[in-house]
Amino acid sequence: IRLYEREDYRGQMIEFTEDCSCLQDRFRFNEIHSLNVLEGSWVLYELSNYRGRQYLLMPGDYRRYQDWGATNARVGSLRRV
């Protein structure tokens, strides 16, 4: 999964292949505005340590956080399923 700091895949990008319990420890931002799921399925959590609202993401492109059903861009952790 590739996470981007801004909409439309702009700004700083980070790629994950494994679970991350605290996004801010690995990426200086806690807001993700766009992403690409390259393979497999992922769950994004609004808070760190896999807490808060959850969003199940299938392979595909998500140009804005609204595309995955979120009401804001906050992402605290993520897990591959």
Rank of each mutant, 00 (worst) to 15 (best):
I1A: 15
I1L: 05
I1M: 08
L3F: 09
L3H: 00
L3V: 13
L3S: 14
Y4F: 14
Y4V: 00
Y4H: 15
Y4S: 02
E5A: 06
E5D: 09
E5M: 12
E5R: 11
E5W: 15
E5L: 14
E5N: 05
E5P: 11
R6P: 00
R6I: 07
R6M: 07
R6S: 09
R6D: 03
R6N: 15
E7W: 12
E7P: 14
E7D: 12
D8F: 13
D8A: 06
D8K: 14
Y9M: 13
Y9H: 15
Y9W: 11
R10K: 15
R10P: 00
R10W: 08
R10E: 12
R10H: 02
G11N: 05
G11Q: 01
G11E: 06
G11I: 00
Q12T: 07
Q12G: 12
M13Y: 01
M13Q: 04
M13H: 10
M13V: 11
M13K: 13
M13G: 10
M13L: 10
I14Q: 08
I14V: 09
I14F: 10
I14T: 08
I14Y: 08
E15V: 04
E15Q: 04
E15I: 08
F16T: 05
F16Y: 01
F16M: 04
F16V: 11
F16L: 13
F16N: 14
F16G: 11
T17K: 06
T17C: 10
T17Q: 05
E18H: 11
E18D: 06
E18C: 12
E18F: 06
E18T: 08
E18V: 09
E18M: 09
D19W: 05
D19H: 08
D19N: 06
D19C: 06
D19T: 11
C20E: 14
C20P: 01
C20K: 05
C20G: 12
C20W: 12
S21F: 10
S21C: 07
S21A: 08
S21T: 07
S21Y: 13
S21N: 03
C22Q: 08
C22W: 05
C22A: 10
L23Y: 15
L23T: 10
L23C: 08
L23R: 02
L23Q: 02
Q24V: 05
Q24N: 08
Q24A: 08
Q24G: 10
Q24C: 08
Q24M: 15
D25L: 12
D25P: 13
D25V: 07
D25S: 04
D25T: 03
R26N: 11
R26P: 13
R26V: 09
F27G: 05
F27D: 10
F27V: 05
R28P: 08
R28D: 14
R28L: 07
F29W: 11
F29A: 10
F29R: 14
F29P: 13
F29E: 12
F29K: 01
F29L: 09
N30D: 10
N30S: 13
N30P: 07
E31I: 15
E31T: 12
E31V: 05
I32G: 13
I32N: 05
I32D: 02
I32M: 11
H33L: 08
H33D: 10
H33Y: 10
H33A: 11
H33M: 12
S34V: 00
S34P: 00
S34D: 00
S34Y: 00
L35V: 12
L35E: 00
L35G: 11
L35R: 00
L35N: 03
N36S: 14
N36M: 05
N36I: 07
N36L: 06
N36V: 05
V37P: 15
V37H: 05
V37W: 00
L38A: 06
L38Y: 04
L38I: 10
L38W: 15
L38E: 06
L38P: 10
E39C: 03
E39K: 06
E39L: 06
E39A: 13
E39F: 02
E39W: 03
E39N: 08
G40Y: 05
G40C: 07
G40N: 02
G40F: 08
G40H: 14
S41Q: 11
S41P: 03
S41L: 02
S41G: 13
S41D: 09
W42N: 01
W42P: 00
W42I: 08
W42L: 03
V43K: 04
V43G: 08
V43P: 00
V43Q: 15
V43E: 15
V43W: 08
V43D: 09
L44E: 00
L44S: 03
L44F: 08
L44P: 00
L44A: 10
Y45R: 01
Y45L: 01
Y45E: 00
Y45Q: 01
Y45F: 02
E46T: 07
E46Q: 09
E46D: 07
E46K: 02
E46Y: 01
L47N: 09
L47R: 12
L47Q: 13
L47S: 13
L47C: 14
L47Y: 03
L47I: 03
N49A: 05
N49Q: 10
N49V: 02
N49G: 06
N49F: 04
N49T: 01
N49C: 04
N49E: 12
Y50W: 02
Y50E: 01
Y50Q: 03
R51L: 11
R51Q: 04
R51H: 04
R51K: 07
G52C: 01
G52Q: 01
G52I: 00
R53F: 02
R53N: 15
R53D: 14
R53G: 10
R53Q: 13
R53V: 06
Q54Y: 04
Q54I: 02
Q54T: 11
Q54E: 10
Y55Q: 09
Y55C: 06
Y55T: 15
Y55H: 08
Y55L: 14
Y55P: 00
L56C: 12
L56V: 08
L56N: 11
L56S: 15
L56K: 11
L57K: 03
L57C: 08
M58L: 10
M58P: 15
M58C: 13
M58T: 14
M58F: 06
M58N: 11
P59G: 13
P59S: 09
P59L: 06
P59K: 04
P59Y: 02
P59T: 07
P59V: 05
G60F: 03
G60T: 04
G60H: 02
G60E: 15
G60K: 11
G60Q: 09
G60D: 06
D61F: 05
D61M: 09
D61I: 02
D61K: 05
D61R: 05
D61E: 12
D61V: 06
D61N: 09
Y62L: 15
Y62C: 15
Y62F: 04
Y62A: 15
Y62T: 02
Y62H: 06
R63Q: 13
R64I: 07
R64W: 14
R64E: 02
R64K: 02
Y65A: 05
Y65T: 06
Y65E: 15
Y65K: 05
Y65W: 10
Q66F: 09
Q66V: 07
Q66K: 15
Q66L: 11
Q66N: 06
Q66Y: 02
W68F: 15
W68M: 15
W68H: 12
W68L: 15
G69V: 14
G69E: 15
A70W: 11
A70E: 15
T71W: 10
T71K: 09
T71G: 09
N72A: 06
N72W: 15
N72I: 15
N72F: 14
N72E: 11
A73T: 14
A73E: 09
A73S: 08
A73G: 10
A73C: 10
A73R: 14
A73W: 14
R74V: 11
R74Q: 08
R74S: 09
R74H: 06
R74T: 11
R74I: 14
R74D: 10
V75P: 09
V75R: 00
V75C: 06
G76S: 08
G76C: 02
G76Q: 08
G76V: 03
G76M: 14
G76Y: 02
G76H: 14
S77G: 02
S77N: 00
S77H: 01
S77D: 00
S77P: 00
L78Q: 00
L78S: 02
L78E: 00
L78C: 15
L78H: 01
R79T: 04
R79W: 02
R79C: 02
R79Q: 12
R79A: 14
V81D: 06
